[in-house]
Simulated scan of single mutants.
Amino acid sequence: MEDERLTAFTAEEVDAAWIRPLVAGVPTESLSPEMMLIMLQQRLRGLDSQIAMETKGIQEAAKASEALSELIQGMAALRDAMAAKKKKSGDDVNLNTFAFTANGVEYNPAKSFLIEHNIQDLVEGTYDADGNLVSVEDHMTRDVIIGKIETLQLQQRTINSGNEMSMVRLQAAIGQRQQAIQLTTNLVQNMNQSCLDIIRNTK
């Protein structure tokens, strides 16, 4: 059960009490071993929350990046299939007249790939009430597909870049957690040693 005495401290007070012995090198009179452990509990709770949040964000971003990779591969397969139909990238290709395979799945006709993966903003299409693509025009140029691939690649780079920053923050929080435990352990040991020294000197 959480120690109710923690509620008596504001975040600023806890931080100030936490930093003071670190800067001064010695505990103040108000910082007993028990109080240090209480503040450690408070400190770890905040860091654990940050670690959990960063970890969740990293996992979600990794899934999004993986999904984009599969989508980019599928779009590239469609691009290549269109190139086999028309040599010039600016020529119209009828997506309703051929099939192609992407990521082990055959799409017949080719335009079914765009509908199944809800690829929007390419050409005129029809959408349902939720904004999902339900039909698309048959004709499209390879240039349009190439442009969409570049857009998806940019989205993926943005996600990956953000994920790298999240990993840096995660590592920093883990380091702070380890430091907090080590600092508290050292301070409590020093306090206990000081008490033992006082007892010895009184004998």
Rank of each mutant, 00 (worst) to 15 (best):
S135L: 03
T97L: 08
D197N: 14
I119L: 09
L6D: 05
N132S: 12
K111Y: 05
S166V: 00
E150K: 11
S161H: 09
T151K: 09
A180H: 02
L152I: 01
M53S: 11
G147N: 08
D138Q: 07
L122T: 00
V144L: 06
M167G: 10
T202Q: 13
T185I: 00
I174M: 07
L40K: 04
V188D: 06
I174A: 02
V23H: 07
S166C: 00
K148H: 06
I72K: 07
M53R: 12
L22K: 13
T10I: 07
Q153S: 09
K86F: 03
T97M: 07
K85Y: 04
K203I: 11
L114A: 03
M39D: 02
A129I: 04
A81K: 04
L68K: 11
I198N: 14
R169T: 09
A16Y: 08
E106C: 00
M165V: 06
R20M: 13
A61D: 15
Q193I: 04
R169Q: 14
T202L: 12
Q153E: 14
E137C: 01
N118L: 03
A62K: 13
R45H: 09
L37A: 06
E116Y: 00
D92S: 08
D130C: 01
F98D: 05
E12M: 08
I51Q: 11
M35C: 01
M53N: 10
Q182S: 09
S49N: 09
N132G: 04
N160E: 15
R157V: 07
G131C: 06
I159V: 11
T158K: 10
Q193T: 12
M39L: 15
T151S: 10
L6R: 12
P33I: 02
T158G: 02
I58Y: 06
L78K: 05
Q179W: 01
Q179H: 02
R157T: 10
I199C: 01
G162F: 03
D128V: 00
Q182A: 13
M191K: 13
E54F: 04
I38H: 03
N163H: 05
E60Y: 03
E164V: 12
L44K: 09
A83H: 09
W18V: 08
D91N: 11
V188R: 07
K203D: 08
Q189H: 10
N186F: 10
E70T: 14
I199W: 12
S166A: 10
A77T: 05
K85T: 12
S30H: 08
N163K: 14
R20D: 15
P27L: 10
A172H: 11
T141F: 06
F98S: 04
E150V: 08
I159C: 02
V123Y: 03
P27S: 12
L37F: 01
E60L: 06
H117P: 00
R157P: 01
I119Q: 08
M75Y: 05
E2V: 15
V123T: 11
G162W: 04
R177G: 14
L37G: 06
H139I: 00
G175Y: 03
Q42R: 10
A172V: 05
S32M: 04
N163I: 02
A61H: 11
V23Y: 09
